[in-house]
Design a protein around this nucleic acid. Structure first.
Lengths: 353, 353
DNA sequence: GTGCCCTACTGTACCGATATAGAGAAGCGC
DNA sequence: GCGCTTCTCTATATCGGTACAGTAGGGCAC
């Protein structure tokens, strides 16, 4: 059985040095056209496909792929419209650079840590526990990193959305309409679930925390104590159930601020179940302005974030960080904050009298 | 400036051979606990993070990542609910094996071909022109491959859905209800668009072809010539416009068979625009049974495919092919066909008289 | 005490490329 | 004819690991 075909095989066949064959593939301007043609022909003849990516990665020190680390349930990452739009924007932005995108899960248990074992040139850390083993490895490996929707860290480039600002605007909007009994509907995998004290909210994720803080900034100032419910987020039916914790009660809120459009959708459906008219009897505010928000009925008042721009910014920041690293230049961490703006549609109105 | 820390650095420090250090990380049972602890401590001390993935990939011949090749617009791949659910199912299935998933685009122009330059252990070929350069490289590299929703090829393991069968069921359902004037709404990026002859349909993708064939099998048998419209698929507004080509005419169809639930959604919205009642005045059948189909109003009659199972089957087939390759066993190509079944909901009824 | 196995570790030979410096020939100005 | 640059191509030294075949020493059976 013949050995595998490598550069050397071709070099021997053509009678040139291995380096020249390498150049024929990787640096065409380093050799004469004639010889190059001859080499490529011989390569084709021998069934050689091109330089082995793994060997090239070792020799060059670059792999041509960047990672994106996801902690939260994979099911969620691919079900959530906001997440998928974000991935799409990144992939699209990365395509012309030739970088592939590798999905790295960060299950914290076991010793399966792709982030440790897969070769990449840099990574995006997205909606991911920053203390996870995966992030730890990447950091210690000194790979170029960009944090997205994570607690800002001085030393790392971050991309964030003005969630707190947006949340404030949402809360203020309800106050301006005259609402005083206000419910908050949070999302999060870990207990406690159900009706809870705002102070007890175990926060999952930086964005969730910022949104809650934003609401409380405004409500607190107005002396309002909201009613808070919390639900595990992945399943579309769960928000609907959680919403009833807020709606099935005599002193039910006249308005609900939701962690996302998906949870808001659950509230709308629960309202239908209960015969509560939105916005006449109940105002609902979402978050994200995902593609469905405008199509819901009533169209959802929500806080818009530009996911497309977020993906673009993340991809650009990462490619820049990688370029800096390659050039040996010290990378100066940057901190982008993208706007989040209230979009008033048809799901909010003054409270019933 | 000190050199990078490698296994050798640690070996020198501890006074053992490099191989022993390697074993401390990769084969713990090959050395005594005490020595191992000492080595790991020294490694930690020196800031060594673990074996370099690129070097390991070269030495071991495996990378810990598999690719998924996507041709169709990336925007589409991340916008389409069917595609994203599929990715999710794959990622979830892959996670416990420790394999990461690398998204490989196959832009046919230029020499940016991640599939050629990124090291992977195997790949899924999904909704992708089988003649693309990316697929060609992967094939010639003799990487384990699995084709999903592609024209079956004897020599490669394939995963397909019984699209043609499902399409037949959909068409038969309309005939059974009594429909005779039937429209088809196809999706495809390439011209011609608009109202076209079924024979002129340039097919994009194997699935599209199978669906069209299935419809025509049944309609042809019944002596019915359908009215066919075609639209570029990515944008949610486009089906709505294309639908009007079928609906804005005196002899408008009493029923429309749609390439996907997304296009069916467009038809439903066009019907609303035109004041046409579904299903009283118009029956609409989708394809895929995506998560939204049941939530549309009226709930969509459609052809269900189990995307979750498709992802599972794809991931399993690929990991098996990779295992076979590693073991040096000849891989016997398998051809899975998953069921596609009609789900009758509220968007179909007998034609108006 | 001899033979044998087992454990723990070592030495050498790759894995398949690229970087970098430099050698030899050709072209050019003066 | 001399020196200089340009164009091609070569030689050597990595890149950072892992595989595999040993070797040395200790324990055990008989």
């Amino acid at each position: 059985m013949g050995r595998r075909v490598t550069l050397q095989t071709i070099a021997d066949r053509v009678g040139v040095s291995r380096m020249t064959v390498s150049n024929a593939f990787s640096k065409p301007d380093q050799l004469s056209t004639g010889l190059r043609r001859e080499i490529l022909a011989a390569a084709h003849d021998l069934g050689y496909v091109g330089p082995d990516p793994a060997a090239r990665a070792l020799a060059r020190g670059t792999t041509g792929a960047v990672g994106i680390v996801l902690t939260s349930s994979l099911r969620f990452a691919f079900t959530d419209l906001v997440a998928t739009s974000f991935f799409g924007a990144i992939a699209e932005r990365l395509a012309p650079t030739g970088l592939a995108l590798t999905l790295l899960t960060s299950a914290d248990s076991g010793d399966i840590i792709p982030a440790r074992d897969v070769a990449i040139d840099g990574a995006l850390i997205y909606s991911c526990d920053p203390t996870s083993a995966a992030v730890d490895y990447l950091t210690r490996r000194r790979l170029p990193l960009v944090y997205v929707d994570q607690e800002p860290l001085e030393t790392v480039t971050t991309i964030n959305v003005a969630d707190r600002h947006g949340a404030r605007a949402a809360a203020r909007h309800l106050l301006d309409l005259g609402h005083r009994r206000i419910g908050l509907l949070m999302s999060g995998m870990h207990p406690p679930h159900g009706l809870i004290d705002p102070a007890d909210v175990t926060i999952d994720g930086y964005a969730a925390k910022q949104r809650l803080l934003g609401w409380c900034d405004v409500l607190g100032e107005a002396g309002i104590t909201p009613l808070v419910a919390r639900q595990p987020g992945a399943n579309p039916e769960e928000p609907r159930a959680a919403a009833r914790l807020l709606l099935d009660r005599p002193d039910r809120p006249t308005a609900v601020l939701c962690f996302s459009d998906a949870t808001a959708h659950g509230v709308l459906r629960a309202a239908v179940d209960l015969g509560i008219d939105v916005p006449r009897d109940l105002s609902v505010v979402g978050f994200d302005d995902n593609p469905l928000a405008a199509q819901l009925r009533p169209a959802l008042t929500t806080v818009h974030q530009d996911v497309e721009a977020k993906g673009k910014a993340a991809a650009t920041a990462l490619t820049r960080a990688i370029a800096d690293a390659r050039a040996g230049v010290a990378h100066v961490p940057q901190h982008h904050v993208l706007p989040a703006e209230l979009v008033v549609r048809d799901s909010t109105a003054p409270p019933p009298r």
